[in-house]
Design a protein around this nucleic acid. Structure first.
Length: 376
RNA sequence: GCUCAGUUAGCUCAGCGGUAGAGCUAUCGGCUGUUAACCGAUCGGUCGUAGGUUCGAGCCCUACACUGAGCG
């Protein structure tokens, strides 16, 4: 069943690369792309109120089907009126299907043709996730965009394993498509295939035949070398239809986001900014810093002079150093606010650059200032 | 004053015959569709002092000094 309530409106494509700017219309509001989507796995972006997340300029945020199904249960979220109402987020949401947990909880699951049996890490119970079950769960949770149930494959994988997995993911994708019930939700298919160009192409083409509402690039940022990661995106992005949203899953490092944008990717999500923030690493326009380092003890300047976030406008590095050293929750909150705003603000600037056909110059400028050693 | 117990890394403590360990702290690093307020590395001690027994002593003995508890 195709979605009637999501629409991709492309307003401009950069003349010098594949970067595109536009508006994605969803049942819970319009959002501009390219966009970065903060992750709130358990129906909360850790440490932040929904209002704080909104104030950062966030559009779509994520929640996770697997984790919400285990606790509190999809029925509870449904009774609450859907995840947006449940967590009081006044904006569009997207749920990941649990496909990433097939990867991250590898030691607690068994993959079968029918679906995946997980051992519940909370109580040891066996939990079965099939495409049909996941579609039911995602319908109950009620996000605007729902992801197909896939297998995020470990890197490195043999060609044979990857081919078999891609075929299974494709069969699961078809089953998801057939089992989808709500018209007001958009269903995205996920391209797998690892580092194998022909498998990426094959997976993309087969998914496109099924006609999804959007397409995601999966299986990246799971420990592979950077060069491999760039290639995975390259091998996939070029086959995705221009009139549908393109989503690079799990990517939050600046260099990878920029690379994705230049290849026409519209959406990115990642736990990185919030996770490293809780662990004291901050993104700045001049590279990453660890606010726990002793050198910040008496540094009474903001994290980043160029940042317009609440944290930078009101607090010093010395204060954040103190809070993080004391393991105070407020420190984690302030650091999370900064990192998320850093990425979201960068995306705002990227959109402006695309409109001017200057995305490539913008990317070069930001990365040079950031430092060549890494993009997080 | 007497009787016990104790004195080992900055802190809290293991180790009770074969030349020292942990956790925390400190100093750093890593986290990418969140099992992550997590994980890892490094720094750090002539084991209260002085003698003695022993091939060999944080570990046993003696004295002293501190600390704590109890009794006078």
């Amino acid at each position: 069943m195709a979605s009637k309530n999501i629409e991709l409106e492309i307003l401009h494509v950069d003349k010098n690369c594949g970067a595109r700017y536009g508006i994605l219309h969803t049942p819970h509001g319009d959002v501009e792309f390219p966009m970065f989507m903060p992750v709130g796995t358990q129906a909360t972006v850790k440490g932040l109120s929904p209002e704080q997340v909104k104030d950062l300029g966030a559009g779509i945020i994520l929640a996770n089907t697997y984790h919400l199904a285990l606790r509190p249960g999809a029925d509870i979220v449904e009774k609450a009126g859907g995840v947006q109402k449940f967590m009081n987020y006044k904006g569009p949401m997207l749920t990941d299907s649990g496909g990433f947990q097939v990867f991250s909880l590898a030691e607690l699951r068994k993959i079968k043709e029918e679906g995946v049996i997980f051992k519940n890490p909370l109580n040891g119970d066996k939990e079965f996730f099939s495409p049909e079950i996941v579609m039911d769960l995602e319908a109950k949770i009620g996000a605007d965009i729902i992801m197909a149930f896939d297998e995020c494959v470990h890197y490195p994988a043999t060609r044979k394993y990857m081919k078999d997995s891609v075929d299974r993911t494709l069969r699961w994708a078809k089953r998801c498509k057939d089992a989808k019930v709500r018209e007001d939700q958009a269903l995205f298919g996920i391209v797998q295939g690892g580092e194998f160009p022909d498998l990426r192409k094959y997976c993309a083409e087969e998914l496109i035949k099924m006609d999804f509402d959007g397409y995601a690039i999966g299986g990246t940022s799971i420990g592979e070398p950077r060069e491999v990661e760039y290639k995975m995106v390259e091998y996939t992005a070029k086959y995705l239809p221009e009139d549908k949203p393109r989503y690079l899953m799990g990517v939050g490092s600046l260099d990878m986001i920029f690379d994705g944008i230049s290849k026409g990717v519209d959406m990115f999500d990642c736990v990185l900014p919030t996770r490293i923030a809780r662990h004291a690493t901050l993104m700045t326009s001049h590279g990453r810093i660890n606010i726990n380092n002793a050198k910040y003890k008496e540094d009474f300047t903001p994290i980043d002079e160029e940042c317009d976030c609440y944290t930078c406008k009101n607090y010093t590095r010395a204060y954040l150093h103190h809070l993080m050293k004391c393991n105070e929750q407020f420190g984690k909150t302030l650091c999370s606010i900064h990192n998320l705003r850093f990425l979201i603000h960068t995306m705002e600037q990227a959109r402006e650059a695309i409109k001017r056909d200057e995305f490539m110059e913008f990317q070069k400028e930001v990365m040079e200032k950031f430092g060549s050693k890494r993009g997080f």
